[in-house]
């Protein structure tokens, strides 16, 4: 009985992972993810910018955390996704996992960059300078380097399949190292700075601030889902260009008849 269920699940999984089915299903999912993301992001922004109370220490300038913190979460999350799907692609030879990993990289890099920029904008009123070697910002900066290395490696290797496999190895090595890097940066930071102003570490955040934060976080996640699926759809068409189903799809969507 259990065996049958597992066999069924494996079958469903492989079917979903087949590029053709993925292309179709992703096409249906993207609008849903996209619209929900838009709704949540708008609601979260209104809530965060206008409804959430003013912070008694930082005034209104703290409101940038509603972008900064979810972006920083996403930057870590997406790297995990890349490493996990890289591992899946290496172990089970599922091509789709490679596609997901490489489609995620630019989005992850963009979130990391966003976290860095908002962090430094936030730092200006708080610390009086655009940049402070604070543990969180430094870790984000190193994470950005990891993303850039990943994308540089991907674009440097000409054969797309070799590039995907090389990048999968790099992402796994990176993800193993991230906790170590993170720990050492934290440690270095406490030694050198003593007590800096680190507002977000304490869980004492008020519910009225937490709600917009979570709205924005879920909105970002859904946006990522929509973005990665639509990038992945394009990549699937590119990598599968020799298959007949792609020729049919492209023929249909562009309205050109293939003779």
């Amino acid at each position: 009985m259990i065996k049958a269920i597992i066999a069924f699940l494996v079958k469903v999984f492989y079917q979903l992972a087949s590029p053709k089915h993925f292309y179709r299903i992703a096409g249906k999912l993207i609008p849903w993810f996209g619209w929900f993301a838009a709704v949540l992001l708008i609601a979260g922004s209104i809530d965060g910018l206008f409804i959430a109370p003013v912070d008694y220490q930082q005034g209104d300038s703290y409101r940038i955390i509603f972008i900064h913190v979810p972006a920083a979460w996403m930057s870590m999350f997406i790297y995990m996704v890349m490493a996990t799907s890289g591992a899946i692609a290496l172990i089970w030879k599922i091509k789709l996992a490679d596609v997901i990993a490489s489609s995620s990289a630019p989005i992850g890099a963009a979130f990391t960059f966003l976290a860095l920029v908002t962090g430094s904008i936030w730092g200006k009123p708080m610390w009086g300078t655009w940049w402070v070697w604070d543990a969180r910002l430094t870790s984000e900066l190193i994470l950005l380097f990891l993303y850039l290395g990943y994308m540089a490696l991907e674009s440097a290797i000409e054969d797309p399949r070799a590039a995907a496999r090389a990048c999968a190895i790099l992402a796994i090595v990176g993800v193993v190292n991230i906790p170590i890097i993170h720990y050492s940066v934290e440690w270095w930071n406490t030694l050198h700075q003593g007590a800096t102003v680190s507002k977000m570490d304490k869980p004492s955040i008020h519910l009225s601030m937490l709600i917009p934060l979570l709205l924005m976080a879920v909105g970002f996640k859904l946006y990522y889902a929509a973005a990665v699926l639509s990038r992945a759809r394009n990549k699937v068409l590119l990598t599968e260009q020799n298959r007949t189903w792609v020729k049919e799809v492209v023929g249909l969507e562009s309205g050109v008849k293939h003779g």
Partner: peptide
Amino acid sequence: LAVKSLTCERGYRE
């Protein structure tokens, strides 16, 4: 040595 249904691509070209 037996080779079965081998497919090879270079870049995206079969």
